[in-house]
Amino acid sequence: MKQENALRHNWTKEELLAIYNKPLMELVYEAASVHRQWHNPQEIQISTLLSVKTGGCPEDCSYCGQAARYHTNIKVQALLPTETVLAHAKKAKDSGSSRFCMAAAWREVRDNRDFDRIIEMVKGVNELGLEVCCTLGMLSESQAQRLQEAGLYAYNHNLDTSEEFYDEIISTRKFDNRIETIKNVRKAGITVCSGGIIGLGEKPADRISMLRSLANMEKHPESVPINALARVAGTPLEHLPKIDIWEMVRMIATARMVLPSSMVRLSAGRIEMSEVEQAWCFMAGANSIFTGERQTLLVTPNPGVDEDMEMLKNLGLKPMQKEVKETCSMS
């Protein structure tokens, strides 16, 4: 059942579109069946995301409130002290999280004192017994190796959207830059967390193209976040409509079908989803949610931890317990 040779890496766009466009109830049923073959359907991994360095990013990602060029009223925050980050990590663990992700609003990692401090944070969070994840921008092979040696479990670097639509959203880097960072992460033996955002003005074909890029990688990402656009005032995409929940369900179900071994993470945009709508996403194959302290996810609103725990209880779900694995074994 859970065999690597059961995974496909040669999907065509036509095949993926056929899955995406199935009658909704049939699609959800099939995705839920695949989910039960590969995962425990009663468990949801609780992942806590903390912004360790906020705002002032030189990139021009059209959806991001942390880009320095947009006027979003988001307060720029320098890199947090290591002890502050570790206190947040301990609190997250005590609240039921098994994964702790640290995000820094950088274009790329630089070999300087800030990176040395990130290394110390990774070591400290790892010692707490949490899966430790980072998202720091573009990463060289040697920097990825340093993070792996410090105990980093996963590195998040989203594709965001399709290669074809990418230039409509970001001009300060190329789609290939993202692929290169993911390759560097893989070479270092760190697990890959990579997904995208829907509701950017893209077409369904773009969503499918992004999924195809992930599903046809030599090794599937262990973690695939599916984000709904969180519309931030002051960004170029602030006036786009809220993505329809059934589009989210279709996207999650299709991801589950073609990336059966991966954790599919219901990520940004949950604040605008009802408990019932989130339940549909879980039925379609999502098995992780992100929480953030102060009811935020980086710089956008997010349900609170207590609210999430009550939702899981209502749905008969439970937080996933961390399995102890050697990071290097996941290469």
Score class of each variant (00 low, 15 high):
N227M: 09
L79G: 03
K203G: 06
S261W: 06
R270V: 08
T48K: 01
V232K: 13
P241Y: 05
A228E: 00
F165K: 12
T161C: 11
T72S: 08
G55M: 01
I74Y: 10
L50I: 15
K174A: 14
Y166R: 08
A78C: 02
D116Y: 04
K123Y: 07
F165G: 05
T54L: 12
L298G: 10
L312E: 07
A6L: 14
T172Y: 01
N112D: 15
N73G: 06
W11A: 04
V125C: 14
M257Y: 04
A103C: 13
R8Y: 10
E59A: 04
W11M: 05
L139S: 02
A154Q: 11
M102P: 04
W106L: 10
E202P: 02
N10Q: 13
G124P: 11
V185C: 02
A230M: 12
E108C: 11
S51W: 08
C281R: 00
L147A: 05
T12W: 07
I169S: 01
V324Q: 15
E108P: 07
Y63D: 02
Q143W: 09
G137H: 08
P41V: 07
Q148L: 09
R69C: 10
D60I: 05
S47Q: 08
T327H: 08
S47P: 02
F282I: 04
K174T: 14
E247Q: 04
W246G: 02
Q278R: 13
C57K: 07
E59D: 09
I179C: 07
V76A: 06
L24P: 01
H9F: 01
G304F: 00
H39V: 04
L214E: 03
I243R: 02
M320L: 15
V109P: 07
T235I: 12
S47L: 09
R265M: 05
Q148T: 01
K187C: 10
S171L: 11
K2Q: 12
L315V: 02
M217H: 05
R207N: 02
R270F: 04
L24E: 05
L298D: 08
P260E: 07
A87N: 08
C328N: 11
N40Y: 07
N177S: 15
N73D: 08
S62G: 15
D206E: 07
K325H: 13
E310M: 09
I252G: 06
M25A: 10
S274N: 06
S33K: 13
E164T: 15
L200M: 12
S223R: 03
D308G: 09
